[in-house]
Every structure is written in structure tokens, then in C-alpha cells.
Design a binder for these strands. Sequence first.
DNA 1: GTGCCACTTCAAGTCGACTTGAGGTCAAGG
DNA 2: CCTTGACCTCAAGTCGACTTGAAGTGGCAC
Lengths: 140, 140
Amino acid sequence: MDVLDIAEVARQSGLPASTLRYYEEKGLIDSIGRRGLRRVFDAQILERLALISLGRAAGFTLDEIATMFAADGRPRIDRQMLAAKADELDKTIRGLTAMSDGLRHAAACAAPSHMECPSFQRLLRAAASHAIGPRGTRSG
Amino acid sequence: MDVLDIAEVARQSGLPASTLRYYEEKGLIDSIGRRGLRRVFDAQILERLALISLGRAAGFTLDEIATMFAADGRPRIDRQMLAAKADELDKTIRGLTAMSDGLRHAAACAAPSHMECPSFQRLLRAAASHAIGPRGTRSG
DNA sequence: GTGCCACTTCAAGTCGACTTGAGGTCAAGG
DNA sequence: CCTTGACCTCAAGTCGACTTGAAGTGGCAC
């Protein structure tokens, strides 16, 4: 059984050790023991971490992701849930696409002020009516 | 000059009064006076609030939005900035589209476990390599 | 055997955009 | 005149995913 030091897991996964400890505390991952104080992980942890990163990227919360692992540690992923998340993403994508199009129109519009640009006005009304919702700020 | 009570602004804009007070504190909006204790706003505030909502929906922070108003209160919106934000959105959209496609593939895949599904594996590698970043959690 | 230093724990801080709660004020209606 | 209650202020709390800091530990190189 291939074992990895926490530093090695951090290196290979690209995640800081503090995040690994946090994930363990949350019950998302398990260490298989200690070497002195140091956590030691099974090499399979890397696949698990990839799965967690995937879930995060798809927009699941850590708590939601936690429910996607059976007690035996194997992923238990509902196909319906995946499809539902895909639908949700598509909805977000449509909103962002509308926004992007609107911004580009406004950027190219020849009106002296944006307030006089019809496509900008349309965008404004859409935003004011909550047709497009605010998104999280961490994207960079 | 048409004036509105804060409650009226809240009603017409759909924003809670606490948010309006918060925006004023941040310097995003101004009240034109008081009636007793109560803030009173110029009717133009509604357009301003729509502009703020638009900025939020486009992914700008409140601080960024604050810089988009000249001292005279008129919007000062850089077309380049709009185009840049549109590019940013497009990038996000591409990531989300890849994710949505991947999720749908995985949902439809006939492999007994997702771990054996090639498209799921591809998705997993992409997520693990940070090719797709985590997004904010507030989407509804 | 001993010093180094990467690890450990635990509590608290961070970020953004607000919300909430306690305690106070005042215009309007009865 | 007095109650009502919607507004006010200011400080603190919330949410999610971490990060940071202080204080402690122990395996390994010398």
C-alpha cells in the first residue's frame, strides 16, 4: 500500500497542507495514520482530492460533496444529481452569456453615453428586475 | 424634483432598506436629505441602483462599481472595461460549459462506476490540474 | 544528544455583501 | 398629548472555505 506524507500529498495535489487538514476535519478525507505527529495518507487520497476539486468546480459545497462518499469511502454519485447540476450550470451560463453579450454591445455602442444606448438600457432593466442574479466574487 | 422616501425606494428597487443604507455608507449612493430621521432620495436613485445591480450581476465588486461614478454622480463607464469584463465572463462561461458537458456525459455514461467512465476521468484530471477553478457559492 | 524545522493543535481572522439586534427618535394619527 | 411603529445608529453576526498565528512536538541530520 502506497503511503504519502502530508507534504507529498500537498505537492502532488497542489493543495496547501492547511486545506488538507481542514478537509480532514470536515470529514471529506481520512488519514490512515501518523508518523510521529505527521499525517500519513493512502495514495488513493489523490483521486479523492481530485473528486473534491471537481465537485467544487462544479459548484457543490463541501458539505454536499461530503454526502457523495459512501461510508466505505467509495464515491456514491447520483447520476440525477449530476444532470441537475448540469441544468443549473446551463442556467448560469445563459445568464452570463446574456450579460457578456450586453456588455459587448454596450462597449461597441456609438451612443455618447451608455445611458442612451438601447442595449445598455435593456441590460439595465434586466438587472434591475433580478432577471440576472449576482454571482460569487471569487473567480480570478 | 421627484423625491422618494427610503421605503418607496426599497419598494421600487426591490432592495431592502438595510442594503440602501449600506450602499450609502459605502458611498455608492447619496440621499438628498432627511424628513425627520428618514432618508429622502431623488428619483434618479432608481437608475443608479439599477446600474449598481447591473454591475453586481456582471461580477464587479461594490468597490469597483464605486469607481464607475464620477464625482458629479454621472456614470463614467469605460468601454474597454466593459469589453474586458465580457472577456472574463466568456472565460468563465467556457469553463462552466466544459463542466456542464462533462457532468452530462458522466450522468449518461453506462460505465458501472463513474471512476471507470473516460469522460468523467477527463473531467477529474481537468479539475485536479486547476484547469477549471472553483466559483463563488452564492448563485441561488 | 541535541538543535532544527516541518509538522502539529486550536482559536481566531479574512473576504464581500449584507443582515440582525439593541436601543433610540420622531412625524403622524387618534 | 400620547402612542405607534417605521425609521434611525452602531456594533456585531453570518456564510463558506480557508488561512494565519501562537505555542507545542518529535523525527532526523549532525
